[in-house]
Nucleic acid binder design. Structure first.
Length: 692
DNA sequence: TTTAGGG
DNA sequence: CCCTAAA
């Protein structure tokens, strides 16, 4: 049996601006794309999911300094007190909207999808799951999301604590419950006096959410004694107010095709194969498809404890779940994004997040600026050492941005009929948690094009406050299993609530996931780096630090299918479904893009001048021996692009400008070594001839 | 593994 | 940056 549900998170009252479909660059990695398959749908959903988390959570941890996080959007015109005590009340954005609400709606899958632009974009496999659009909205500020930080992250029992946990990526989603039965919009009221400052802000606690999981699911038992259900979120077809509805669909063989094509009970494998039937329009809309399989024996637990760690984690989750449930706190909060200028530097980073305080006279580094504006919180831990960079004088203009909605992927769960309701709940929890826990990548899309250069200022990118802001969008994509950037320890350290489970652990217990599509591969969402979480992906273009932001998006999009978290061990133990070996799971996780800095170029040029082209390994060792992330292939590629750059007109160049002087040297060196190479060949040839 | 190139 | 054929 299959339960079909779709839930969608959205903010009421927001407009749905035409969102340029953020796409991966037209010339995306062909290979990746080739590999992609129906699974991508899942990816999208996941993306959305994550996005939701981002929004809701507001922030993640991240930063090394463990400072507070804050957020992201900034308002050009508004002037908000930077004062840490600034309360929402005082915030201009809050005017007329002191009560912020967050809605969740669940609708029938057949219901027309309205009010969400994602569906379209998601139709494409590679599309971004969700988009945050900005607008120079002077209105609806109230609906704007506010990213506020929990004031006391460590206070137990305090909702902020939860928020924090969530933010850190290790929080338990479980704490949140969706009101399945309630037909009325749920809303979360933000304390008017919540502090929005760069420092810990009190924030948004939600409540009033009926427990979704409590809802009675009518399940049909398939031949295999397993129950499959799918959950997904969809926008409210009727309007801005998300109505929570519950729709259960029986997945009969007949209906299967229609509903989602993945429910044929005959065999699990079969179910797998069915997945590909993404052709279905509904499927396309839903786009998501995650199949979670639970071990039949899970019984009470529903999950198998693989090991102590897992068990432990599980416990945590369980607790979280329970507590969350009882408290009825909903983790998702609607927040306003403010750009907090405070994250300007590594040590100070009191904020990182997605917030931007509308303050004027901000004269931060361009990169910082763009970073912040991109919605990515500047990781406090990231040292933003760009003093050297040409300073960009940001004017007083700020750009207002707002996030519309997110989408949660449809989940398919297969669980034995003899499993307990509790296990079912947990299973769902796991699934959701796992997906949300991966963190996400943020990309900036302007006029339909992805803005890749993180160093570019908004102004330079054409995103001005007076411009068509509606052309600006964000892509929030689930963080794939990619390892967190090789940052120093500081880069990963984060202040997490003590009770907060580490990201790593939290995914371990993930139930076996069955993804739609045979080709779908499953893997552990958080393979290597425990540190993986939102914060890690947000950015930093420090030389030695990766600057994932935009580039990472693409990658994620491409690898979104990788989002399905699976505990390999569990899979094995459960022996439920012939899962694909997670082996090549990370499937070539695309590396994050790390633009070469001028100094790096300088080093490269110098090395090549000395060693010549064709000896990249030597060049690497000579000039980039300690730059682990630069491979000789990278250097070779860079040289290639440098030569190209040097040949084109300065107007056609993009990215951080390379001093003409260096480019000149590039051409000279290139010419010289090319000539040498030619001579060498000539020599060889003549020698060969002589021998013959 | 490195190079060299195309994608 | 990725992927690969060649070396």
């Amino acid at each position: 049996m299959v339960l079909h549900k779709r839930l969608d998170y959205g903010f009421n009252g927001y407009q749905v601006p035409p969102i340029p479909r953020a796409t991966r660059s037209a010339r995306g990695r062909g290979n990746i794309r080739k590999k992609s398959d129906g699974n991508e749908m899942c990816a999208f959903d996941l993306l959305t999911t994550v996005a939701g988390k981002l929004l809701l959570e507001g922030e993640s941890t991240s930063n090394s300094s463990g400072k507070d996080r804050s957020a992201v959007v900034k308002d050009p015109t508004e002037t908000v007190k930077e004062n840490e005590d600034t309360s929402l009340k005082e915030n201009p954005y809050n005017e007329g909207c002191q009560e912020r609400r967050f809605f969740i709606s669940q609708i029938v899958s057949e219901a027309p999808v309205v009010n969400h632009c994602l569906s379209k974009s998601t139709d494409t496999l590679s599309g971004p799951a969700s988009v945050i659009t900005s607008s120079d909205c002077s209105e609806k500020l109230g609906s704007a999301e506010q990213f506020i930080h929990g004031e006391s992250k460590f206070e137990s029992g305090n909702c902020s604590t939860k928020a924090e946990q969530e933010a850190s990526g290790s929080g338990d989603f479980s704490s949140c419950t969706l009101g399945a039965e309630s037909k009325k919009p749920m809303n979360i009221d933000l304390p008017i006096d919540a502090k929005l400052s760069t420092n810990k802000t009190a924030a948004i606690c939600s409540s009033e959410f009926p427990d979704l999981w409590d809802r009675k699911y009518s399940m049909l038992v398939g031949p295999e004694n397993t129950v499959k259900l799918s959950l997904s979120m969809d926008p409210d077809p009727f309007g801005s107010f998300p109505v929570i509805r519950n729709d259960v669909q029986l997945a009969n063989k007949d209906d299967d095709e229609k509903s989602c094509g993945c429910t044929q009970p005959s065999t699990r494998n079969k179910a797998f194969r069915q997945a590909p039937c993404l052709e279905d329009w509904r499927m396309r809309k839903l786009q998501a498809s995650k199949y979670w399989e639970v071990h039949p024996q899970s019984g009470e637990e529903g999950l198998v404890n693989v090991d102590g760690e897992t068990s432990h984690v599980y416990q945590n989750r369980k607790n979280g779940y329970m507590s969350g449930r009882s408290q009825r706190d909903f983790p998702f909060k609607k927040r306003k994004l403010y750009y907090c200028n405070s994250f300007s530097n590594s040590n100070g980073g009191s904020s990182d997040g997605i917030c931007s305080s509308p303050k004027k006279n901000i004269n931060r580094d361009a990169s910082d600026y763009s970073r912040a504006s991109s919605g990515a919180r500047a990781a406090a831990g990231t040292s933003i050492s760009k003093g050297a960079r040409a300073s960009f004088r940001s004017n007083d203009s700020h750009v207002k941005l707002k996030i519309k909605s997110f989408r949660v992927p449809e989940l398919f769960v297969e669980i034995p009929e003899n499993a307990t309701v509790g296990s079912l709940k947990r299973t769902v929890m796991e699934a959701v948690t796992t997906i949300l826990g991966g963190g996400l990548h943020i990309g900036v899309v302007f006029q339909g094009k992805k803005v890749r250069d993180d160093n570019k200022t908004l102004f330079q990118a054409g995103i001005s406050h007076e411009g068509k802001l509606d052309a600006v969008g964000f892509t929030l994509e689930p963080n794939s299993s990619r390892a967190s950037p090789p940052l120093g320890p500081e880069g990963r350290s984060r202040a997490l609530p003590s009770e907060t489970p580490q990201p790593l652990t939290r995914c371990s217990p993930a139930p076996t996931v069955i993804c739609n599509g045979i080709q779908q591969r499953t893997y552990n969402a958080f393979p290597d780096h425990p540190g993986t979480n939102l914060s890690n992906f947000i950015e930093s273009d420090h030389d030695s630090a990766p600057s994932p932001t935009d580039a990472s998006l693409e990658k994620n999009a491409a690898d979104s299918r990788a989002l399905v978290p699976v505990a390999a061990i569990d899979a094995e133990a459960l022996a439920v479904v012939p899962m694909r070996k997670p082996k090549r799971s990370e499937t070539a996780q695309r590396r994050i893009r790390r633009p070469f800095s001028v100094s790096e170029v300088e080093a490269l040029v110098q090395a090549v001048e000395k060693l010549g082209t064709g000896r990249w390994r030597d060049v690497k060792m000579r000039a980039f021996d300690n730059a682990k992330h630069r491979t000789y292939v990278d250097l070779k590629d860079k040289w290639k692009t440098l030569v190209h750059t040097a040949r084109i007109s300065p107007q056609q160049r993009r990215g951080e400008p390379v001093p003409q002087e260096l480019l000149d040297r590039v051409l000279i060196a290139h010419g010289y070594w090319s000539q040498q190479q030619a001579r060498q060949q000539m020599k060889h040839q003549s020698e060969t001839r002589l021998l013959l």
